[in-house]
């Protein structure tokens, strides 16, 4: 750590502490042998993990959340990648407007988006809540898909496709041998970010829930409002472990520098 920048270093340490310590408390609590969410934990046991993986509402909600996140991620990428290409490589007029449109969900409060979808689609068009949630999450993720994939394209030399054409590649060939490989790290990180964003989302999922389809965060929220036992902590720890696993795999295969490099550089 740089000692020449004491303020930045202090802030960084403070940031890590503020982010990590509460998580450590949750993780520690989940291993308790007692029956309340209390720190320090009373004894050590895996009973709440056992309870969590056998709690049907959580299992169902977990499957729902994973399904929703996966589908919404795929949809957001399917819409976002062509949009990115059009913005960065196309000659469409009013590029700025198009880009603004795709980034706007970042600024509009989620509750507003949720309410609009609720009124127009669920009440108005009588769509079922899974479809509406899928639409909502896809819309929320579009900015990531456009921005993050766009970042890797913006960094690339704008003439590489032309260079490929000059060397004998058809437009399609140039796309698959040059453009797509350049986009790959961006697509990967956009998928990761989208998936996590959808999986963690509360406002939209809360507003658009139904008895048939409810995401894990919403179900957990529901649960803590009624019972205050460590099963929620155990569930959180399991999710955390899953996230860390994904992060490690991502780091090993692509590398964080490359995944997030697109944003920071």
């Amino acid at each position: 750590m740089s000692t020449r920048r004491p303020v930045a270093a202090t802030l960084a340490v403070a940031g890590y502490v503020i982010m990590i310590v509460p998580i450590l408390f949750v993780v520690a609590t989940s291993f308790t042998g007692g029956s309340t969410l209390r720190f320090p934990p009373e004894g050590l046991s895996l009973r709440w993990f056992d309870a969590a993986v056998h709690h049907t509402p959580f299992i169902t909600a977990m499957v729902s959340s994973l399904q929703l996140a996966a589908l919404a991620t795929v949809l957001a990428l399917l819409l976002g990648i062509p949009a990115t290409l059009a913005i960065h490589r196309g000659r469409l007029p009013g590029k700025g407007l198009v880009e603004g449109l795709f980034l706007s969900p970042l600024i509009v409060p989620e509750l507003v988006v949720g309410l609009a979808l609720f009124q127009q689609l669920m009440i108005g068009l009588r769509l079922d809540n899974f479809t509406v949630l899928l639409i909502g999450h896809t819309v929320l993720m579009l900015p990531y898909a456009v921005r993050v994939t766009g970042a890797s394209l913006a960094l690339a030399d704008p003439f590489v496709e032309e260079a490929a054409r000059g060397l004998g590649a058809s437009p399609l060939r140039a796309f698959f041998t040059v453009t797509l490989p350049l986009l790959r790290p961006g697509i990967f990180s956009a998928a990761l970010l989208s998936f996590v964003t959808s999986f963690n989302n509360v406002p939209l999922s809360l507003l658009l829930q139904s008895r048939d389809f409810r995401t894990l965060p919403v179900t957990m929220l529901d649960y803590v409002q009624q019972s205050y036992d460590p099963m929620v902590a155990a569930t959180s720890t399991i999710i955390l472990a899953g996230t860390v696993l994904v992060a490690v795999v991502a780091e090993r295969t692509v590398g964080f520098a490359r995944i997030f490099g697109g944003i920071n550089r």
Binding site: A156, D157, F159, V160, E162, A163, A164, R165, G166, L167, G168, A169, S170, T177, V178, P181, L182
Partner: peptide, 27 residues
Amino acid sequence: PERRGLGMVFQSYALFPHLTVAENVGY
């Protein structure tokens, strides 16, 4: 351009970053 058989060197070089030097030249 792909049917003209000309070689172009761009001012920014426009090398393919995901390929090695040899792969660039062999493209």
